[in-house]
């Protein structure tokens, strides 16, 4: 199915683990440093220069040449495990795109309002093809990978729902099976 930004809670709640999703609208990239700065802003009671509520946060550090995105696959979302719950407290509805899944703590904080979408890791050229334009860049002092890039995308995907808003988590299901097999092997 296709998701459009700004997101709608009822559409997010409909999504189930394993569903294929394409996104049209705006993505904001955010990695470790951008998350840290958002938290710093909130601690000081400052408004963010971009609006994350009902938006899509993409765990990504792109290769951008002038205003053209050349390669922009997802980064490892688990690095944001301790940071994402702060974001989730601030919003009514949000979607994350990343790779590798997130922690149980994030999964709990996502319930009722957020979905985690997996885009194939390393597929940077494929992702860039779906990014129509760079609308803006925030916090460029953090460097190209860590800055917040605002992308306009059309049918960005395929993304697969890895964690839904009801506490279902494909990664933790796989992990349980892996650990069972590991015990058999060793």
């Amino acid at each position: 199915m296709e998701l459009k930004t700004p997101l709608k809670v009822e559409e997010i709640l409909k999504l189930k683990v394993g569903d294929e999703v394409y996104i049209t609208g705006t993505l904001y990239t955010a990695r470790d440093e951008a998350h840290m700065r958002m938290i710093e802003y909130w601690e000081h009671g400052k408004e963010l220069p971009f609006k994350i509520d009902y938006s899509v946060i993409y765990h990504c550090g792109p290769v951008v040449e002038k205003n053209r995105v050349l390669s922009a696959g997802p980064t490892t979302s688990a690095r944001m495990n301790k940071l994402a719950p702060h974001l989730l407290k601030k919003v009514q509805c949000i979607a994350f795109i990343g790779k590798g899944g997130m922690s149980g703590e994030v999964r709990e904080a996502m319930k009722g309002k957020a979905v985690y979408l997996a885009f194939t890791g390393g597929a940077g050229a494929l992702a860039a093809e779906r990014i129509k334009s760079v609308k803006k860049v925030y916090w460029e002092d953090l460097g190209m990978p860590e800055a917040v890039w605002e992308f306009e995308v059309e049918k960005f995907g395929p993304c697969i729902v890895g964690i839904d808003a009801h506490g279902n988590d494909l990664y933790s299901e796989v992990e349980k099976k892996v650990n069972a097999r590991l015990r058999e092997l060793l």
Partner: peptide, 15 residues
């Protein structure tokens, strides 16, 4: 993705 990178002459992965 590997095909696209070769065709477009861009890095296959952004990292």
């Amino acid at each position: 993705n590997v095909e696209a990178a070769k065709k477009l002459n861009v890095p296959m992965c952004q990292d």
